[in-house]
Simulated assay, not measured.
Amino acid sequence: MGDKGRFDEWEARLWERLAGLLPTTEDAGSFRDSREIGEQEAGIWFLLERLTALELPVDETTAAEIEVLAEHWGERASVHHRIDACARDRDRAASVRLVPDSEAVPGDARAAGITAGPVARMTVVPWIECTHCPSVLSRAHAEDAPGLPGYLAARYLVSRPDRDVPDIYATTDLLHAFESVLTCG
């Protein structure tokens, strides 16, 4: 099965689990319906609106999963503040967490150990980190204009404590990159 098929399966399972966070069958049904009719972006907005309005807690891993889902659908930058505003369930152990905005400082890919190729000229932003080891999934952005990183990630990088150079993933491999941090490689 190709990467698209793997992502679709992961998304379907995640979508169902996220629907289970909503307190009413009406809310859960509206959320499910948005995916069925191909309006995933609207579904993500609806989910986050209900989670924040009702102050429903999500654990750190679920927040990261929602952010990956939003990234895939091109909505991450638009909904990041809503994901960040969700109440957190501190009682559930998390395997990953979103890098806090105060620590998500953009840097040069060369400083991350990438010295050749187009990725070496990109801006790298730490995004999701493992809670068990120092592995980090970062978004790498090409410049839209001199000194301004692009809106969407052009690659994903996973840095690990046992490697000098991060693993580089294409945008179509977002799920692989996320899973590698989720499972500590």
Rank of each mutant, 00 (worst) to 15 (best):
G185K: 05
A145P: 05
W45S: 15
R50Q: 08
E60S: 14
V125C: 00
E179G: 00
G20Y: 07
M122K: 06
L21E: 02
D33C: 14
E60F: 03
A19S: 12
C184Q: 15
L56M: 03
A154G: 12
R90N: 13
P149Q: 07
Y151R: 11
W10S: 07
F46H: 14
L98P: 12
E179R: 15
D144C: 00
D162Q: 09
R13N: 10
H132C: 12
I128G: 03
P100C: 11
R76S: 10
H72A: 12
E16Q: 14
S78D: 13
T62F: 01
D33E: 15
A12P: 05
A93G: 15
A28M: 04
D144Q: 00
A94G: 06
R97W: 04
F46I: 02
A28Q: 12
Y151W: 13
R13P: 00
D101T: 06
H81Q: 14
E75H: 02
T172C: 05
H141L: 10
E49S: 13
S135V: 06
S135K: 02
E26Q: 10
S138N: 15
A142Q: 03
R155P: 06
V181E: 02
G43I: 03
P57G: 07
P23G: 11
A177Y: 08
V105T: 10
V99P: 02
D167G: 09
W15A: 10
A112S: 06
Y169F: 13
G38R: 09
P161D: 11
I128S: 09
D3R: 13
R97L: 07
C133K: 07
S78W: 06
T123Q: 00
A85P: 07
H141S: 01
G74I: 06
V105A: 01
V68P: 01
G38M: 09
R17F: 11
W15M: 06
P100K: 09
G43D: 05
V136W: 02
Y151A: 06
A70V: 00
G147E: 00
D33N: 14
P118E: 11
V158I: 05
D101Y: 02
L48T: 01
S78F: 09
A19E: 04
E16H: 10
E55F: 08
T183Q: 15
P166N: 04
C133R: 05
R17W: 07
S78L: 04
W127T: 01
